[in-house]
Simulated assay, not measured.
Amino acid sequence: MNSLNECNDKKIPGSIIPDLFLSFFKIGLFTFGGGLAMLALTEEQCVEKKHWITHDEMMYVTIIAESTPGPIAINCATFVGYQQAGLSGALAATVGVVFPSFFIIYLISMFLNQFLEIKIIANAFKGIKAAVGIIILDAAVMMIRKMNKDRITQGIMLVSFAAMFLIQIFSWNFSSISLMIIAAIFSLALYQINVIRHGKEKREK
Rank of each mutant, 00 (worst) to 15 (best):
residue 73 A to C: 03
residue 2 N to R: 09
residue 49 K to P: 00
residue 130 A to M: 11
residue 138 D to M: 15
residue 54 T to I: 12
residue 187 S to L: 06
residue 55 H to Q: 11
residue 8 N to Q: 10
residue 113 N to W: 00
residue 91 L to V: 05
residue 16 I to K: 07
residue 51 H to P: 00
residue 186 F to W: 09
residue 78 T to G: 13
residue 171 S to W: 04
residue 30 F to K: 10
residue 66 E to P: 04
residue 158 L to R: 13
residue 110 M to W: 01
residue 150 D to W: 01
residue 162 A to T: 10
residue 42 T to L: 09
residue 101 S to H: 02
residue 191 Y to E: 10
residue 104 I to F: 12
residue 81 G to L: 07
residue 5 N to E: 10
residue 182 I to Q: 09
residue 146 K to S: 08
residue 49 K to E: 09
residue 47 V to F: 11
residue 95 V to S: 12
residue 118 I to W: 05
residue 146 K to F: 10
residue 85 A to M: 02
residue 57 E to I: 14
residue 18 P to Q: 09
residue 15 S to M: 08
residue 43 E to L: 14
residue 104 I to Q: 08
residue 182 I to N: 03
residue 147 M to F: 01
residue 85 A to Q: 01
residue 60 Y to Q: 14
residue 22 L to H: 03
residue 201 E to K: 15
residue 65 A to Y: 00
residue 116 L to H: 03
residue 139 A to C: 05
residue 89 G to R: 04
residue 156 I to V: 15
residue 105 I to P: 02
residue 91 L to M: 12
residue 76 C to E: 05
residue 157 M to D: 02
residue 121 I to P: 04
residue 150 D to I: 01
residue 121 I to G: 03
residue 122 A to L: 03
residue 122 A to R: 07
residue 129 K to L: 12
residue 1 M to S: 08
residue 171 S to V: 04
residue 100 P to M: 08
residue 124 A to H: 00
residue 18 P to Y: 04
residue 157 M to V: 14
residue 13 P to C: 15
residue 194 N to W: 09
residue 194 N to A: 14
residue 39 L to N: 06
residue 10 K to D: 05
residue 1 M to I: 08
residue 112 L to P: 01
residue 32 F to A: 01
residue 172 W to E: 02
residue 59 M to F: 15
residue 154 Q to P: 02
residue 61 V to S: 14
residue 195 V to G: 14
residue 149 K to S: 10
residue 86 G to S: 07
residue 81 G to R: 02
residue 189 A to E: 09
residue 52 W to A: 12
residue 121 I to Q: 07
residue 92 A to L: 11
residue 53 I to K: 02
residue 71 P to S: 11
residue 91 L to H: 03
residue 118 I to P: 00
residue 18 P to S: 01
residue 136 I to Q: 08
residue 133 G to H: 11
residue 143 M to W: 12
residue 122 A to N: 07
residue 94 T to W: 06
residue 156 I to Y: 06
residue 156 I to G: 11
residue 56 D to C: 01
residue 202 K to N: 10
residue 180 M to A: 10
residue 6 E to F: 00
residue 60 Y to E: 15
residue 97 V to L: 00
residue 118 I to M: 05
residue 36 L to A: 07
residue 29 L to F: 15
residue 178 S to E: 14
residue 28 G to V: 08
